[in-house]
C-alpha cells in the first residue's frame, strides 16, 4: 500500500506554485526543498521521490513510467500528446497560448512563417483555421523572430503580456488557456491506485 511514488516536477516558474499546493494539501516537504539544486530529492517522511525536470520533459518521464506522476502545463500535454492520464486541473500557473506579431501587419500570402516552441500546437491551430503556414521551431526568446524578420507571427505562452509589450508586439488571437495538470502513468494509475487516489483526493480539496 505504501509504495514509493515518484513525482516529476517542472523546474522553474511552476515549481514553487506546485510545491505550495502540495504543502497546502498537507504533505510535509522539507524547507530546503525549494532551493535545492539536486535533480532527485527523496522525501522519506512521505515516501515520495521528486525528480526535477524541464517542464517540456515532465510528460515524457511519466509516459515511460520512470515517474508515476507529474505536474505539467496543458501546453506541454497538447504539444507532446503523451499517453498519460490527465487527472486534475491544479489551476496553478495560469496563462494562455496566443498568436502574436508586429501591430497592423498581415501574414505573407505565399508562405506565412510562424515561429514557436510549440510546432504541433501551432500547426494544428492554423490547420483548423484553414491557413497553410510554415512552422519554424525555436527554443526560446520567440519574440525575436518577427522583430528581425524570421517569421510573420509567433505562437507562444502569454502570462502577463509584458514581454510582448516591451518588444512592441501585439496579440492577434488566443488559442487556448493553460494551467498545470496532474498527470499519471497508466500502469502506476492501476498498480499504485490507492496511494494515487489518496493524493488526488487531498489535492482536490485544496485546489
Amino acid at each position: 500500500m505504501n509504495e514509493q511514488l515518484t513525482i516529476a516536477m517542472p523546474k522553474g516558474r511552476i515549481f514553487t506554485e506546485a510545491v505550495d499546493l502540495l504543502r497546502n494539501a498537507g504533505f510535509n516537504l522539507p524547507p530546503e526543498f525549494d532551493d535545492s539544486r539536486k535533480l532527485i530529492i527523496d522525501v522519506e517522511e512521505e515516501n515520495f521521490r521528486f525528480i526535477l525536470a524541464k517542464p517540456m520533459d515532465v510528460a515524457t518521464y511519466v509516459e515511460h513510467g520512470v515517474a508515476d506522476l507529474g505536474i505539467a502545463g496543458k501546453d506541454v500535454l497538447l504539444e507532446e500528446e503523451r499517453d498519460v492520464y490527465e487527472l486534475l486541473d491544479l489551476k496553478i500557473s495560469g496563462c494562455y497560448l496566443a498568436v502574436a506579431g508586429i501591430p497592423d501587419t498581415k501574414m505573407n500570402d505565399v508562405a506565412p512563417k510562424i515561429a514557436t516552441k510549440y510546432p504541433n500546437i501551432a500547426a494544428a491551430y492554423f490547420r483548423e483555421q484553414g491557413e497553410q503556414v510554415e512552422i519554424i521551431k525555436l527554443n526560446g526568446s520567440i519574440e525575436l523572430a518577427p522583430l528581425i524578420g524570421l517569421a510573420d507571427r509567433i505562437v507562444d505562452i502569454v502570462s502577463t503580456g509584458r514581454t510582448l509589450k516591451e518588444n512592441g508586439l501585439v496579440e492577434y488571437e488566443t488559442i487556448t488557456n493553460v494551467t498545470s495538470r496532474l498527470i499519471v502513468n497508466p500502469v502506476s494509475y492501476r498498480i499504485k491506485d490507492e496511494r494515487i487516489s489518496e493524493l488526488v483526493k487531498r489535492l482536490n480539496e485544496v485546489i
Binding site: G65, P186, V187, S188, R190
Partner: peptide, 11 residues
C-alpha cells in the same frame, strides 16, 4: 482488459 506489471511503464 489490460495487463500491468511493476517495473514497466506500459501495459
Amino acid at each position: 482488459f489490460e495487463v500491468y506489471a511493476g517495473m514497466v511503464g506500459f501495459p
